[in-house]
Amino acid sequence: MPDTTATWRTVEDDVVRGRQRLIFVRERDHYVLTTLCVYADGVVVWQWKSTDFDGIRAAFDDGTLTLAPPEGAKIIVAGTATGPVSLESWLTPELVICDLADEVDRLNDRPDSSGRCRNALIAYAAEPTQSNLEIVRERYHAVPEHRRIYMLGDMDHNDVPVRILLAEPGETIPARRPEHTLTVTPETRERALEYFRQSERGIAESRERNALDGPETAIATPVHMGGRVYPNGWPEPPGLEVLQVDYPAPVVHDGQEYPTVMHAYWALSTDDAAWRDRIAGVERGLDARVLAEEAPRRDDWSAFRLGVMAALLRDKFNRHPAMAQQLRETGDARLLYSDWGSRYWSSDGANWLGRLMELVRSELAAR
């Protein structure tokens, strides 16, 4: 988007992508022009403040953030200028918040409000029912008003085909240019429907050309795993629970056997032999993790822990064919692993456990 630029921050050694835009922040008797950043995980940051969407809405409501300071207010643009300036903004706080929500969708490779509206339009063109039209109406009005003209990516037609479909027969559609104003008729509605049918055909052809190497994203529904504790023993049959790193499944690393991947991972996190044996000898994987918190950590652990986990997962699924089959049966679904102890491994952060299991699954399939 032309009014935002890319940014990023690190969370437990992982990079979280973001976008930033300008905003005014009230400080005592003046306003400072600063950057407002939104990140893929929904965190919103300005200056030293870190919050979420509820927090930014409250900041607009109480005047901490503003798009245009009051008439005659002192404005500071760091390193550039200071003084009273009269400003007007054609945006509103709610439009900015909607923009930020769209940014979060795009940063997570999800359809934003415009994309969701386009999808609804394609569905309506294929099956022009009243219920589908109401979905189009709802999603069109969810697109920030100042973005609607761009939502189709067509600078010749703008959003006119959408407005034709949402209008009543005989209604006049105001165009961006007066000479393009038109009255809705059955013929104009049919042309608008055909516009979206052709658009879908073009998109399908583009997908076919671009997907010679297979789909860019998983087709199957994401699979959630991990994060479950069974104090009275694992369920029988265990199903997807066998994929958890603390599920009883012996693994071997450098000639030494460990009861689970979790035992091995935390034992290998220390270079103290006595601590390593103690961690490897506890009953459950979760106990190994708790005990390892007291052990001295290897200085270079963060540099190669990812490789250690990858090696342990490969060994687990090579050594236990039934568990490997359970992993393969997840198909091409995105694997989302919940780990209450680390956002580095968990799907609410970098999801490295899920990503490594997808890699091992692919290697098993290739074999």
Rank of each mutant, 00 (worst) to 15 (best):
L87E: 10
Y247T: 06
P321Y: 07
L359H: 08
L165N: 07
H224P: 02
V261G: 04
R367Q: 12
L336A: 06
A311P: 03
Q325K: 14
T217P: 01
P84D: 07
Y258M: 10
R367S: 12
D109M: 06
H320A: 09
L133Y: 01
D246F: 10
E168L: 12
D3C: 06
I203N: 04
A280W: 07
W345Y: 09
D213Y: 07
T92P: 02
V43E: 14
P250W: 13
R19L: 14
K74L: 13
E127V: 00
H224M: 15
R28Q: 11
A218W: 00
V136S: 04
P237A: 11
L327Q: 02
F317R: 02
R209C: 06
N119D: 03
G55N: 05
D154E: 13
Q47W: 05
A211P: 02
V44W: 03
P237C: 11
G226N: 12
V184W: 07
L67V: 03
E194T: 03
H253C: 14
A123T: 06
G285H: 07
L65K: 01
D154N: 10
P238W: 11
I164R: 05
D29I: 13
D300Q: 12
G79H: 01
E187C: 03
W352H: 12
S346D: 06
R305A: 12
A218N: 08
R284C: 13
A292Q: 14
A59Y: 06
D213W: 08
D112V: 02
T66F: 03
P259D: 10
A264P: 03
E293K: 12
A58G: 05
Y344E: 04
G153V: 05
A303R: 12
Q256R: 14
G331S: 11
V184E: 02
V96S: 04
Y39I: 06
V32H: 13
A73D: 13
N318C: 15
L87N: 02
R298V: 11
V15G: 04
T188C: 03
T185E: 11
H263V: 13
K49Y: 15
P186C: 03
D299M: 12
L291T: 01
Y247N: 09
V261Y: 10
R57F: 09
E257H: 15
A59V: 00
R137C: 00
G18K: 01
V32N: 08
F196Q: 02
D299W: 09
R189L: 06
P2E: 09
T34Y: 14
L33V: 09
G18M: 05
A167S: 10
V229L: 13
T185C: 10
A81T: 04
R314A: 13
Q326E: 08
P111G: 06
E236F: 15
M262Q: 13
F60P: 01
L67Y: 01
E171A: 10
M323W: 15
S113W: 02
H263D: 14
R367W: 14
Q256E: 14
W90R: 04
A167E: 11
G226K: 00
M1Y: 10
G341I: 09
V162P: 07
G153A: 04
P178F: 09
I135A: 01
D299Y: 09
V160Y: 07
L335D: 05
I203G: 01
K49T: 13
G285I: 08
S346K: 08
R305Q: 12
L107C: 10
V136F: 01
A40L: 07
H253D: 06
V245Y: 07
S114F: 00
D54W: 07
R189N: 01
D112S: 05
E283D: 14
V143K: 03
W266D: 03
D54A: 12
A175K: 02
S114Q: 02
